[in-house]
Amino acid sequence: MKVQALEPGTVVEPQEMTRREEIMQIAASLFVDKGYKATTVRLIADAANVQSGSLYHHFGSKDEIVDELLGKYVRNALLRYEEVIATTDKPEEQVQKLIESAMDAVHSHRAALLLLQQDGRWLAEQPRFSYLNEVGSKIETLWRNTVKSGIDAGVFNPEIDPIVPFYMVRDAVMSAARWFNPQGKWTVTRWTRQCVILILSGLCTPGKVVRG
């Protein structure tokens, strides 16, 4: 099949969101604004300008929306972290790429981050969302082992507790999700670079120069 070439200067419009994606986005905003418990199916339907019954054509329940929102974020995060570890065996490069991957969520999964801040602990106690603790534990272990390997190799300061960098990055990501403004002077790239320099400078053994 021959594909017709576009004329020079042709603007290709981005593909429109599906109705399901629109509802997902609306629901995510409500979860962030009102919290999980206060956001009802009726509220989501009203905001999406559909009947409550019509909403069930797209999602079986409110929990299904939350599941897609959070599940996609945490599982994607773990997958990306595992890919980072597989790309290099140098601890300082691994930590830098882990930070960069974590910070990317400020832009790509902001609603999920904000919902986790508000209701993550309660949701993780519910059977349907128990994977939040399971995946979270795997992510913590991956970070801890990465930093420990750097300490064992003499690259990182042995006085550093291997889990502390993870907590610092996690909190930096959560904080940025609240104040980040895509039109502001602090881009995700700039914020990420500052975090890389700050954390690696504290991690690396004295005398090692760190550049983000």
Rank of each mutant, 00 (worst) to 15 (best):
L116C: 11
L123Q: 10
A111E: 14
H107R: 15
K138T: 00
E92K: 07
D104V: 03
N133S: 09
P91H: 06
I99E: 05
E140H: 11
G136R: 13
E92M: 01
S101G: 07
I139K: 12
L98T: 02
L114P: 02
A124H: 14
R110H: 09
T141A: 15
Q126C: 02
S101N: 14
H107G: 10
V106E: 02
W122A: 14
L123C: 05
A124L: 12
E93I: 03
I99A: 06
Q126R: 15
L98I: 04
I99Y: 07
Q94L: 04
A105T: 13
D119R: 06
S108Y: 12
V95R: 13
E125Y: 06
E140W: 06
Q126F: 00
V135N: 09
L98F: 00
A102G: 09
F129E: 06
T141M: 10
Q118F: 05
L113K: 09
R110T: 07
L98C: 02
S101T: 15
Q118H: 12
V147N: 03
V95A: 01
Y131T: 07
K138D: 00
N145M: 04
A105H: 15
P127A: 00
D119I: 03
S108I: 01
I99N: 07
F129M: 06
D119Q: 06
T146D: 00
L116M: 15
N145K: 14
Q94G: 01
R144G: 02
E140M: 10
I139A: 11
R110W: 04
T141I: 02
W122L: 08
E100S: 15
R121A: 14
K90T: 08
A105K: 13
L114S: 07
K97I: 00
L115V: 15
L98P: 08
I139L: 13
N133V: 05
M103G: 04
S101K: 09
Y131F: 15
A124N: 13
S108V: 03
Q118E: 06
R128G: 11
S137R: 08
W122V: 12
K90M: 07
R128T: 10
L116H: 11
K148E: 06
L123M: 05
P91G: 02
E140G: 09
G136T: 08
W122K: 13
A102I: 00
P91V: 00
H107E: 15
K148M: 10
E140N: 03
T141Y: 14
D119H: 06
E100H: 07
L113N: 13
H109F: 15
G120L: 09
L142W: 02
V135L: 04
A112V: 08
N145F: 02
M103S: 01
L123E: 08
L113D: 00
A112Q: 08
V147F: 06
R144H: 11
H107F: 11
T146M: 04
K90V: 12
N133H: 15
S130M: 02
Q117W: 10
L123T: 00
L132C: 13
V147G: 07
Q117I: 05
L123Y: 03
E125Q: 13
N145T: 05
D104Y: 07
D89A: 10
Q94I: 04
K148V: 00
H109V: 06
D119K: 08
D104S: 14
E125A: 11
W143K: 10
E92T: 03
E134H: 09
E140Q: 13
L132V: 12
M103K: 05
W122Q: 12
P127G: 05
E125W: 00
L113G: 12
Q118S: 15
F129N: 01
E134P: 02
L142R: 08
L98N: 08
E100W: 01
